[in-house]
Amino acid sequence: MEYPSHNLVKNNLVCSNFLEQNSSDPTDKLLIVGGESSPKDCVVYDVNTKQATLYPKLNEKRVSTTLVQVGSKVYVLGGGYAGHKPNKICEMLNLNKPIKWKLLASMLTARQDCSSSYFEDCEKFDIHNKKWSKIKNMIHARDEHGTVVCNGFIYCIGGADDSKTLSSCECYDVKSDVWNEIAPLNQARFGSACVVLNRNIYAIGGYVNDQYLSTVERFNRVIGKWENIASLQHARYYSSACVVVNKKCYCRVQ
């Protein structure tokens, strides 16, 4: 997907995008935060008008951060910048009044790439009490994995540990605080873009064995299996993917 209207979007090599994935009425706007070329910038991109709007800058420089929406509020968690170690710093922006990013309580563990950098520990943030607390550890330590929420469960897809690329996947039951393994990917991959569309989970592109991937897999929760579908036209690694109002999946290359 091209972003010709704004260089902050066009040149943002490693960015996070945001979407109300659980909404029955998906948004037609993307929120792009941080990245190597503009680590403090926040841009809203309208896919209909192809126009970008600058939002308030982050308090901290961030690359490979994690972005989560809860209602009208967007939370940015951890990340790193320019060779620095992952950080614990979190901040929040109210989209109804996007005036300033507000710093929040720091995480218990420094994290980037939507993970804990080869640790298996996990934590959750209570948006009411504004506190982080530990939850059950994952089955496998993993880094640079895909993470999505689908039907009230959290899915962690592929990734890498300190020795190999992973095909294994697991699912977290928020109510019972239990991780369960699900069917592995057909192809091990890390740095893939993952998204939910029509209650199916997609793992798009990625990297393995010094090779960028164009392959795409879809997880059917009914039968509990991954299936290969049409490949991308171009191999992509560390790309971003999202679903917009026309219920199409868009992917942007790093």
Rank of each mutant, 00 (worst) to 15 (best):
S106D: 03
K73R: 13
Y118A: 05
V70F: 10
R62Y: 06
V44C: 14
Q69F: 05
P86M: 02
K40G: 08
S117H: 09
L77E: 01
G35V: 07
C114F: 12
L104V: 04
V33C: 11
L108A: 00
K88G: 00
V68P: 06
S106Y: 04
S115A: 15
L58E: 00
G78K: 03
L108N: 07
T65F: 02
V68L: 08
D121M: 09
C114S: 14
G83D: 07
G35K: 09
K100Q: 14
V47Q: 05
I32Y: 01
L93H: 01
T49I: 11
I32E: 03
S106A: 02
N94P: 02
T49E: 13
Q69I: 08
G71K: 07
V74N: 02
L93T: 05
P86A: 13
L58S: 07
S64Y: 11
M107L: 05
S106R: 00
L108S: 00
V76T: 08
Y81R: 00
L93M: 08
K97A: 14
G34W: 01
K85V: 08
N59K: 13
S117W: 05
E60I: 10
D46W: 01
I89M: 11
D113K: 06
D121C: 15
K100D: 12
S37D: 12
L54N: 13
V70H: 08
S116N: 12
K61N: 08
Y45P: 04
C90G: 02
Q69P: 03
Q69E: 11
V70W: 01
G71V: 08
V44A: 15
G79E: 01
G83C: 06
P56F: 05
E36G: 12
E36S: 14
V47C: 07
S72K: 13
V44M: 15
G34T: 07
V44T: 10
Y118K: 03
L95W: 03
L108M: 10
K40P: 02
K100E: 14
S72Y: 07
Y118W: 03
S116D: 04
G35F: 05
V43E: 06
T65N: 14
V33K: 05
E60D: 14
V76S: 09
L95R: 03
S116T: 13
K97E: 14
V63A: 13
A82Y: 10
H84Q: 15
I99D: 13
N48R: 14
R111Q: 05
G80H: 13
F119K: 13
G79K: 05
V70A: 11
Y81I: 03
W101E: 05
L54V: 09
T65W: 04
V33G: 03
D113C: 11
D46K: 06
K85D: 14
K100P: 02
V33A: 08
L95V: 06
C42V: 15
T65S: 15
S116Y: 03
C114V: 11
Y81G: 06
K73V: 04
A82W: 07
K57H: 12
I99V: 15
I89G: 04
R62D: 06
Y75T: 03
T65V: 12
N48Y: 09
S37V: 11
G78E: 07
K100A: 08
I99H: 07
G34L: 05
H84L: 13
D121N: 15
D121R: 10
L108E: 02
I89K: 10
L67W: 00
Y55I: 10
M92F: 04
